[in-house]
Design a protein around this nucleic acid. Structure first.
Length: 288
DNA sequence: ACTCGGTCCTGAAGGC
DNA sequence: TGCCTTCAGGACCGAG
């Protein structure tokens, strides 16, 4: 579920707590998430300063003073919860020892520059998420990012690069959008939404999306992601005001998850179809 | 070089 | 009420 906009929203929630802070203690409830955590994971983090928290596609990257970068992927059900020190008693948490809930797998304790500490819990029921460490200087060459396509909200996502990526593909355009080598950060939901917005059939061959169609689709990808980030920003404020849980927010999708409901444009029932084992939602009339 | 299907994981939802 | 099946899906891997 967390695609680029959700990850960006989580990043914005974590950044004020993590950036400039130091990992004072890292606790693991298990040695693996989706993959084995790197060797000496906690030891390599403890004492490290967090220089910045950035995002690449669906990944968050915490650049550390040690020369390594902590790479975090939320998978499907990954979420972070922040527990601040009790305001009435600086230096103390409500619970002396972190209280773990079901599926809490990692706890970062950080000391912030203002002297206040925080605990950051990583919870992931389905454990599709993962964490890794990679030398910061070679991050782009790491197995996670080598070959990854351009950031859709950056200058690098050009008409030229998009056209070139689609041109050689015989797979359906829906599958191409999900391929992180074509464009980074798009998942099943926003692939459906972008295709609807661009009025392009998900079944159309990627190579046939060229010219004006490719231009429309590129702009649609950018627009749906930007709108979702904007929507996430507002819910982030709500989350921060409540319990410190960062992650999911309800966004109003036009076609995703709306099988048999009327298309918002032509009122024809939205169709669902399976592509590469994934559900695709679309309007058979508006999208060609 | 690309495409496709299977795999991981667990909770929610629906059928009987 | 309870058991069973199905579905959700990002990244990866092996086969074609």
């Amino acid at each position: 579920m967390p695609e680029l906009p959700e990850v960006e929203t989580v990043r914005r929630g974590l950044a004020p707590v993590m950036e400039g802070a130091t990992f004072s203690r890292v606790r693991l409830k298990r040695k693996d998430l989706r993959f084995a955590l790197p060797k000496s994971f906690a030891k390599r983090l403890e004492g490290a300063h967090i220089l910045s928290l950035s995002r690449r596609g669906k990944y968050m990257n915490a650049a550390l003073s040690t020369g390594e970068t902590l790479i975090m992927h939320l998978g499907m059900t990954g979420r972070f919860t922040i527990e601040e020190e009790t305001a009435s008693a600086p230096g103390r948490f409500h619970h002396e020892v972190a209280q773990l809930e079901k599926h809490d797998h990692v706890v970062f304790e950080v000391a912030r520059r203002d002297g206040r500490s925080a605990r950051i819990f990583y919870n992931d029921a389905r454990r599709f998420g993962f964490m890794d460490l990679s030398p910061t200087g070679a991050l782009d060459q790491s197995r996670h990012f080598a070959g990854m396509g351009p950031e859709p909200l950056s200058e690098g996502f050009t008409e030229t690069s998009f056209n070139a990526a689609l041109k050689k593909r015989s797979a359906p355009i829906k599958a191409a959008l999900l391929d992180q080598r074509v464009v980074a950060g798009v998942g099943n939901i926003y692939a459906c939404e972008a295709l609807f917005r661009a009025k392009i059939s998900p079944r159309r061959k990627a190579s046939s999306v060229a010219g004006v169609r490719a231009r429309r689709l590129r702009l649609a990808v950018i627009a749906v992601l930007e709108e979702a980030i904007e929507a996430g920003g507002s819910t982030l404020r709500d989350f921060a005001a409540s319990d410190g849980a960062l992650g999911y927010f309800q966004h109003n999708f036009k076609v995703y998850g709306r099988e048999a409901e009327p298309c918002p444009i032509c009122k024809t029932p939205v169709k669902r179809l399976e592509q590469a084992g994934r559900s695709t939602f679309f309007c058979g009339v508006c999208q060609r």
